[in-house]
């Protein structure tokens, strides 16, 4: 039994970054980790973060597994626990259980083109995988990043997107329902961006994260363009509470999203994906 999955480990807030009005990043450190030990996790996995006396919440890990000492969680203050966490300052403490679940198929993606599709407010699991790829750029082929948001200001990591767009063999396509005169943003949704990018399905994997309705239409568009369902990967969200596949809240059909996911190969969840009530 891995005690880190049942008993929280204390971690200290080393830095707090305000990303937008209600989104913030906590950079955490385990003081108990011995000298050269590193916190081992895979992009796409998540932790259960505990705020003292308030409760736990599932948050994906946004930093790189190779980072020394620190690991980052980007959090949107929406609920009781996350609003409380937004009040944390440098030097404060949280509890951490994890890492949980299955991350992105990065070994399988090596040597292939990668299409990354996301929607909504800066999808943290996707930022983790993009960072991972660009730090190991030579291992991957053409990278296409597509993101759609409602408002221009929802692109909280706009600078990073601009930097990524400068990289070789990389396409960044951004869409906003309301681009507010920003000429670099396509006026529309992420699915409409498919007409503006050149995707070659033969040697590519696609990774998707965001609202399920966005993923549903993006999956349809990808499959129309010849992507087999075995090379589409989606990051799912459900009500994760234990992380160990025990508490039952995150079940999607017979799957425990916390343990069998949160990243799934699409053909393995197609039976349940976007079915009302699952």
């Amino acid at each position: 039994m891995n005690m880190h999955t049942t008993l929280p480990m204390p971690a200290q807030v080393k830095e707090r970054i305000q990303e937008s009005a209600d989104i913030f990043t906590l950079r955490l450190q385990y003081p108990d980790l011995a000298g050269d030990q590193r916190y081992a996790f895979a992009p796409g996995q998540f932790n259960m973060l505990y705020l003292h006396g308030v409760g736990e919440v599932a948050i994906s890990i946004v930093s790189d597994p190779q980072d020394e000492r620190l690991f980052d969680h980007t959090i949107r203050a929406v609920g009781r626990v996350t609003r409380g966490m937004s009040q944390l300052k440098e030097g404060d403490w949280v509890g951490v259980r994890g890492p949980f679940g299955v991350g992105w198929p990065l070994a399988e993606a090596e040597g292939k083109d990668v299409v990354i599709i996301t929607g909504g407010l800066g999808c943290a699991p996707v930022v983790a995988v993009i960072n991972y790829i660009f730090r190991r750029r030579e291992r991957f082929g053409q990278v296409t990043i597509m993101q759609g948001v409602k408002h221009r200001e929802d692109l909280i990591w706009r600078e990073r997107y601009d930097q990524w767009a400068q990289q070789p063999d990389t396409t960044v396509a951004l869409a906003a329902d309301n681009p507010e005169q920003d000429q670099s943003l396509f006026s529309g949704n992420v699915v409409q961006l498919f007409d503006r990018v050149d995707l070659q399905p033969d040697n590519a994997v696609a990774m998707l994260c965001g609202p399920e309705i966005m993923m549903k239409y993006a999956i349809e568009a990808l499959m129309q363009r010849g992507f087999p369902d075995t090379r589409l990967w989606v990051s799912m969200e459900r009500n994760m509470q234990c992380g160990n596949g025990l508490c039952g809240h995150c079940q999607m059909g017979p799957l425990f999203v916390c343990r069998d996911g949160p990243v799934f190969r699409y053909d393995r969840i197609a039976e349940w994906f976007f079915r009302k009530g699952f």
Partner: peptide, 16 residues
């Protein structure tokens, strides 16, 4: 009860 936690000046202390 799964675990207890105590907060003091040196941080959080979790006990199963």
């Amino acid at each position: 009860v799964l675990w207890q936690v105590v907060r003091d000046d040196s941080g959080l202390h979790f006990e199963p």
